[in-house]
Design a protein around this nucleic acid. Structure first.
Lengths: 225, 225, 225, 225
DNA sequence: GATGAATGAGGCTTCATTCAT
DNA sequence: CATGAATGAAGCCTCATTCAT
């Protein structure tokens, strides 16, 4: 019932234009869902997935427990939707950046910086969830993480392959691009985890990012022949 | 509590020569402790930290729950000791390899391969625990993970700086070595996670490792001036 | 609340002739109520009273939860009305048959067969509800069951007493008729439960019924002096 | 772990004679289990299965909730074990009586009276559970009820067939005995339910029983040819 | 030292019912 | 009248931990 954008309307004739009240309900509905998600994101990231009870989430979202369960099947579903959301946003930013790298190392460099300059400072909680809280919670969750990482790796890999094509060369081996893409994601993960979550030095991220992308550029070059 | 009825030998008198039975008890004690740790490692890695109950651990270690609690303060302690153990082994292998890199890129290359060729195939469960199960379980655990990663990063960083010294150059910036070391750890983490845990392709790890160390060498070179 | 904008007809003026639209509304109302009852009967009987949620009932009756609550005070009320309905139908069939037994054992025999030949095959769900689902749900429900059984017992008892009167004899004791009537109801209950609900052998019911009524006839005779 | 009569013993040598303390533990264990069962029986019968929470049971048995769950898998298991217990007792009494009926109608008569005179006054709660509370609670429970009734029916059926053999006659049809046995059980059920649970006239049960067994005898005779 | 029965706080989830629109 | 989102009390159950034997 929830989660499907039903547009039931009793006042309007038979049209495609929902009534004003229906629209408002729709909005409020979406609003609530987002509020709950936002609260869950914050709590999962700061207090931990397991330490956060559903009641606490309901409280802070100013709804009842039942309402949370109206919008989300269970606690795991809440985490899954958070993961998906973050997955989308990451692909929107990172994926896009890499897809628009234009087949040049400079493009790769710029794409990498997007993560450190645009994503990290804006969404530290999301990072904590994808990289920490969602790790090893259930098969379903792990499955979803795998898929998200897979997509991102594919994006980066594609960008790398384009670089090779553009520069008229190739990679050391067929697997090089995939391995490098995975490496790059791993670097992003650990760097953001290290400097943002552990060391709480968000202001260092730009510098760190620059070193990292330089490192990447060197690594990539080295695997091109 | 430590007083048992039969203390007719020089067990814990004042000497340096423990009696035979005391020695045996000591051995049995160590044996038990290791069995429990081993069981916990396997279960945490395969079933998940939370899904594994203390009773299950006791059962498979063929002791009682009480005994587990005699050797370990609580469940978290079990995880902490597993982490420490893995930390030591990692430093023993990786740290050593990097410390013995001899200040050459070739040394770095060889050190990196140690992880993929020696550690990964031998200790997949340990990897699952450090990289997955211990993530976000409690502040104490996270603290320990941070320390372990920190130590490893320091080792790698040191190796990198030695390369710079040996080659008579320096790095792009003072932070370069630390960033690179973190990058390298992140690569190791994600690559092993990806190919060993997710994709279950342990046979690919050697090839993957070669690409990875090549990538590293390139990256490092690029940050030397 | 009962005041709607359009009251241009003689809807609820003072007359005996309701308007056409009022009649239609009345019909629709009755229709809805019956639909809900029918759905509840099916679900209670097949899925169980407790396992059936109000939302499921509303869904299958193609109305909203609120509507169900408009027609029925609460879930218990739904069950009570189902019980009453079944009670009426049972008395309509069984009671009538026994009342029309004409004071002969042959009449008793025919009356008994009505249950197995006419009621059981037609209303298995109703049987499941009276004999299974309504058992031990609440004091109110149990009260109603008691009343229904009481009425039926009275009907049968009356028929038995008429047999005695007609044949110019009496029963072993004053309580005989009541006890026998209760026995007969118990037989009907367990036989239908056993062969219809448990053993799923509806085709056997006619034969079973014949044995049963024969058993009854013998039992009744035996208590007449 | 629970429910299996382990006889672990640390003090004794290697013998078959458990130590005194082990024996006492064993006794206490059985004691507790029976206490919980008794409390559950009383509460289920008087307050209703659904209205009785596990906490209430634990409280009245003077143990913790965890302890209840140590002895019983879940609430349903509690009910199942109560059912089984009652099933055994019923067969012990009723089944035995019918098995010892000796192939005479007089034997049947006496057997029937056992139910009213020995079982009903002693175990009203058990009756409430088998005939009321366990009805329609879950497939597993219903399955068990079916089995219990089946066993009892078989016992009675066997007694009836023996009567036929002894008297050198047979029954109206092959199914007669089964149908009659089912009838008899149904009578017992409804009569006890009616006079014990509903009408609270336990003192009437003996008289009612006499009428009932007379009724049975007549019915049985009537189906013999 | 070893045992394992007992504990009980806390977690997740369901679902009958209400009420503003 | 109908709707269906919101409520929240109540229920069942788990499991890390303790402690008497």
């Amino acid at each position: 019932m929830a989660r499907t954008s039903k547009t039931n309307d009793t006042t309007d004739a038979a049209g495609d234009t929902p009534s004003r009240s229906a629209l408002r309900r729709q909005r409020e509905r979406e609003q609530r869902l987002q509020t709950i998600l936002a609260v869950a994101e914050r709590l999962f990231a700061r207090e931990g997935y397991h330490k956060t009870g559903m009641e606490r989430i309901a409280d802070e979202a100013e709804v009842s427990v039942g309402t949370v369960y109206f919008y989300f099947k269970n606690k795991e579903d809440l985490l899954l939707q958070l993961l998906d959301q973050t997955g989308y946003e990451l692909r929107d930013l990172l994926g896009d950046a890499f897809r628009n790298a234009g087949g040049t190392l400079e493009g790769i460099r710029r794409a990498g910086m997007v993560f450190f300059e645009a994503f990290c400072p804006r969404h530290p909680d999301k990072l904590a969830i994808v990289f920490r809280e969602s790790a090893g919670q259930s098969e379903l969750v792990e499955e979803r993480r795998k898929r998200i990482f897979g997509k991102l790796i594919a994006d980066v890999q594609e960008a790398l392959q384009q670089v090779a094509r553009t520069s008229g060369t190739g990679f050391r081996s067929a697997a090089s691009a995939e391995v490098m893409a995975t490496c790059i994601l791993g670097m992003f993960e650990r760097l953001s985890y290290h400097y943002l979550i552990w060391q709480q030095r968000p202001q260092d991220l730009q510098g760190v990012g620059q070193e990292a992308v330089e490192f990447i550029v060197g690594g990539v070059s080295n695997l091109m022949r």
